[in-house]
């Protein structure tokens, strides 16, 4: 079972399409033991730096290690919380300001576990998964994205 879970594909090339998110929600209608979904969406922000505006973030990852870390986060969440299912998606490559780059979808019988687990999963992703982002400005210069704790 855990080897099957490991095959879950997390990385998506480019932005995450809102229609894909809607589809993911619709697919859960057959799982009638679920009473609560928590969804977190990370959106690329048009930060200002030195008078320049971020147009896009170009994400890269150390894929093999990232897949392993996602798997560990997933296993830990299932062990710790009462979850029916969970899905994590993260963009690779270029995502423009205003587009979605991360989609975390946690489902449980009740809201409490769904809320807490979702928050915990996001914090774990930010802390432990080897992903980087190049913030590209309107003049094609860039800085490397830094996460706030």
């Amino acid at each position: 079972m855990s080897s099957q879970k490991k095959k879950n594909k997390v990385f998506i090339e480019g932005a995450i399409n809102p229609a894909f998110i809607a589809d993911s929600i619709a697919k859960h209608s057959s799982k009638t033991s679920i009473g609560a979904h928590t969804i977190f969406l990370g959106q690329v922000r048009n930060d200002m730096n030195d008078g320049k505006t971020v147009q896009a973030i170009e994400y890269s990852a150390y894929n093999e290690m990232a897949e392993n870390e996602f798997h560990k986060i997933r296993e830990a969440a299932f062990a710790q919380y009462e979850l029916t299912c969970m899905h994590i998606y993260h963009s690779l490559g270029k995502v423009r300001a205003g587009e979605i780059s991360m989609f975390v979808f946690v489902s449980s019988k009740h809201r409490n576990d769904a809320f807490i687990a979702c928050r915990e999963i996001i914090e774990q992703i930010k802390a432990n998964v080897p992903i980087w982002g190049k913030e590209i400005f309107d003049d094609d210069t860039y800085v490397w994205k830094q996460n706030n704790s």
Binding site: G42, Y59, W132
Partner: peptide
């Protein structure tokens, strides 16, 4: 061997 700067996912 891989060199990893601070992670910045999300």
């Amino acid at each position: 061997v891989v060199l990893l700067p601070p992670f910045a996912g999300g």
